[in-house]
Nucleic acid binder design. Structure first.
Lengths: 202, 202, 202, 202
DNA sequence: TCCTAAGCGAGACGGTACGTCTTGTCTTCCA
DNA sequence: TGGAAGACAAGACGTACCGTCTCGCTTAGGA
């Protein structure tokens, strides 16, 4: 069987790589929606019917291509030891900022108005599930009982996306570590603000 | 100005209304991307060329249609007196939950993977700007100096979208008032969580 | 009835004249088929719906406009005394060349590939009927019995259109009188040619 | 060259044939102008965009289709030996009547008011050029000097079209051979008529 | 002199066709 | 056997033109 797999031509793998690279490059250049299959195959030096030999449609190629990106993220998240909290806030956020910095061109498009809703939502789901796991490990039952954990997770996932959006849109003026810090701090400020000015007018 | 508006044929206004209604209905039914101009004009009992008499493309119709929805939201936000904070958290959030509840079908689609990135981002921008204004009014300069206000604003905008996503996806199990409360509380929890598990022994 | 006609506003008549003039001018400029109703009404400084107040379509306007042209031709043909033959050939042809010379711009288009088949065929019918009448008057029964008169008439009608085509296409190098002469002469040559070269090789 | 032709997919050739056939059939049925591209592609069982893969517009398809018809005509005209004249008149005319008889349905439309000016004019040009060649071969220089050969050619081309029109419009009451004879004879009569009625006492 | 009906401008609209673009499928032929 | 090449169906796109309609203005003839 490994023979069969080996026999599965390297050409095949190579072609797929070309297609993925082409997609990623084009997303940065013109935004996902504006890309046609022809654009991709032209860039990949592949004929259009060949595209369909490998992927059902543009979306499937995108999802496949994302795995590359996600492998990076997952690896880093996996390294986080549950107990290892830092004064700067949760290390998940730090990892996220570092990861996004690495693929900044890609995220700058995908988390903008030229991006794809499905991608944004997917990122939100992903972050929410990561947060949920971490919260379940870190929090004693008593503290979380008053508010459903998934609300907390979705809130923090959205918050992180919000901060990331701002960061990407504003030419990333701070390095990832500082962003993680600022993100944590603005969370605290938000709570104060949520308590109303009576608190700070005091 | 009202003269110009009055002079603008009622037929024209009526046709536009039909088109807007058709779009909103179709978004709920099949998601924005899947809608063709023909779908819209069929639903609106209008010919396809007539569509182009009024709007350049589907997006322009969407943006115009949104203004209607936004007029509702803006009116409510405008009524908030800056000083009137509540124990449940910032009234902006409450208004948001109420507004989204009213157009739940629409938002359920648009803030999902069948939605439109441009719309999500636009909502984020809108919320961020509202938050920014409120923060500038409510916060004494000293407290905000450590973290840029817009990071705070974008973080809270994203957080609200995150909570809203969860709410819409999960059949809105709580009423808007309760959601506003939970959203505020999960903010506080998030901060605690951000401080690390050392605090949870508290 | 003349009352009704008189009551029919001069404006109405004027508008129709504008439309007819516009059509004739545009035919010369861009050929009949290429003209849109909008072109005509723009040229005539009239709104498009106004066009339909007067004519059902472009063709009806053409036919009406042609009457002007035809009035000229009919008047001249009517003046021909049946018996008055000339050495140069039938005066009908002379009149035709003179008439076409007068409306040369118009005929140059209409009898070219930018023209209208219906018009060409109509001219052929018209000429054939004129010829037929003249032949019936001029020829004793005996001579015509061997060949149907209408074949003769259609042959000569087509022949005249052929010569006119050549004349118009080649910048009308001869005046009408000379063309009438040449047309007659080439008829005779054609017959000789039809007899075969044996005749002239003799 | 045959290589190129062979390499050109049979499917392609077949599709073109379908389109040509559809056009010819539709011309007979409803006249050229009334035909839409959709009519043609529906009839040819081909999608509309496919039409544009092969032809720029309806006219290009017509011209291409005509070449088929013309190949037939040219082959026959080519067989005429210059010296072989007949008592019945020029064999070119006979060939023309035979050819038109074969494609009678087509010509009946195209040489009528439902036809196309460009086509009629093209036929006239074609016939004129054939006549001109034959005249140049058949006539000694002396005889033609008094009248330009091309006038003669255009006259005879028009004359033939005139007779053909009559023939087609009147259900072709005579066979091609007899028509060739009558056409020749009416030429002679026309000349007599052109000489004026003084001769008819003859 | 005013009134009133007709001619007309303006422009929205339904409908049909246009020529183009993209997608996904298929077939043929090459390496 | 993977891929190139390209024909094709399907269907949406944005535009052009047609013929109809409605709404007002204006304008000239009759009261």
């Amino acid at each position: 069987m490994s023979e069969v797999v080996e026999k599965m031509d390297r050409r095949k793998q190579r072609t797929r790589q070309y297609l993925r690279d082409a997609l990623m490059a084009l997303i940065v250049e013109k935004g996902y929606e504006a890309i046609s299959i022809q654009d991709i195959t032209d860039r990949a030096n592949v004929s259009r019917p060949t595209f369909y030999l490998h992927y059902r449609d543009k979306e499937e190629l995108l999802l496949t291509s994302l795995e590359e990106v996600y492998d990076d993220l997952n690896a880093r998240v996996g390294e986080i030891t549950p107990g290892g909290m830092m004064a700067d806030g949760n290390p998940v956020e730090l990892v996220a900022f570092q990861h996004v910095a690495e693929f900044a061109d890609f995220y700058r498009v995908m988390l903008s108005s030229r991006g794809v809703a499905a991608f944004i939502i997917r990122v939100q789901h992903y972050l929410a599930s990561v947060f949920q796991q971490h919260v379940q490990i870190c929090f004693p039952a008593g503290l979380t009982s008053t508010v459903p954990i998934d609300i907390l997770a979705y809130r923090e996932a959205g918050a992180l996306i919000g901060t990331l959006s701002w960061w990407l849109e504003n030419e990333m003026p701070y390095p990832p570590t500082e962003m993680a810090h600022l993100h944590y701090q603005s969370g605290a400020k938000g709570v104060l603000w949520g308590l109303g000015i009576t608190l700070d007018a005091d």
